[in-house]
Design a protein around this nucleic acid. Structure first.
Lengths: 195, 195
DNA sequence: ATAATTATAAAGAACGTTCGTTTTGTTTTC
DNA sequence: GAAAACAAAACGAACGTTCTTTATAATTAT
């Protein structure tokens, strides 16, 4: 089956580039690096991707889609609002622990460097979805009444920061252990007080 | 005055590179770009900096020192703890508005890409200083008792996030207008409740 | 069913550019 | 006239991409 073989090599390119771009930066990874790392010829790589930029494009789209799906199902299956928030934290923390290169690629790579019409990370699909969720909760009166971007920053800011601390190896252990404590802090900052 | 002329051209290189690295990314800015942008020859640039990497190194150190000083004086002159926190926010927001390229360079540039033994942003001097401040406040019982890195994330995470939203032009206006609202949120998450 | 043909997949050398750096030379400044 | 400041050409290496060739698999014809 040639199709299967094709997909396998494409996956090999995908995985190596995700890892290498995340670790070394897009500009520091050349076609010859990719060729060595995947044990494929440059010709083979160009057979599957028409340019280096297309690889990055593909990584970006795939990563975005994956994260969005994970968050979506987590939020939709949550019992209440606090659980939904917890789910978001845990999904992102889980991805950080189990697929760190994906997370590094998404959060660290300056996509503007190679994607011509770059949408900043914060305008990407997963974050747009979360923003909508927050907007709804403010309208419902669950969250304190404030600018949605402030609320979004109060929620996502600390989460992303912890993830970065983990990726920079400042935090050495599994960050899922911090989820509850972080959730407490975030909750205090945005949930409306009970009277 | 030859020394003065030297410092002027060095400053010209400094300022153009700060702006250009921040906007286009270190790897996308070549010596020929710098030469054009500064109206200096490549030889002149190499007379002042022994390598391209040294320029980035110099920018990094200068920016770090500048931010640290601004934060230090702001915190030391604050009347109380809440004011200190507010000062940190306002100093960083002010820098974002008045020196956006410096802020972009510090927050966006992947320093690991060109600085061999890269210390992550979070371990940089200004952030270390803030971490110490937070640690003290936890010990004093001013902040809730929690892991210092969690507290640090709850404080710095939202601030940095707002700054990024501004730099990505998602937030269009002066972010200092959001300082109070952000401070409220952050305060709720970390200050110990009064009984 | 086997042979011929055609796509597909992969290899690797070669191309033209651009990169950071070096070298050599010229103009200033004291 | 010596040192400092700048200019500009040239260097080798590395870059992304293209081109030509070869092996393998799939399809068709006999």
């Amino acid at each position: 089956m040639s199709r299967k073989a094709t997909n396998l090599t494409k996956k090999k390119i995908f995985e190596y580039c995700m890892k290498s771009f995340a670790e070394n930066g897009y500009s520091n990874v050349g076609l010859r690096n990719i060729s060595e790392g995947t044990k494929l010829s440059i010709g083979a790589i160009y057979y599957h991707f028409s340019s280096k930029e297309k690889i990055a494009q593909f990584l970006y789209d795939t990563a975005g889609r994956l994260i969005l799906n994970e968050i979506k199902t987590a939020v939709e299956n949550a019992a209440d609002d606090r659980e939904a928030l917890k789910s978001i934290i845990l999904v992102l923390f889980k991805l950080t622990e189990e697929d760190p290169y994906l997370m590094k690629y998404v959060l660290y790579t300056k996509h503007k460097d190679f994607l011509p019409k770059a949408q900043p990370i914060c305008s990407t699909k997963p974050f747009e979805y979360i923003k909508k969720f927050i907007k709804a909760k403010i309208k419902e009166g669950v969250f304190e009444d404030m600018d949605v971007l402030i609320a979004s920053s109060l929620i996502m800011g600390p989460i992303i920061r912890i993830i970065q601390l983990r990726m920079d190896n400042v935090l050495k252990g599994d960050i899922r252990l911090y989820a509850e404590s972080l959730l407490d802090g975030i909750s205090r900052s945005i949930f409306k007080k009970q009277i």
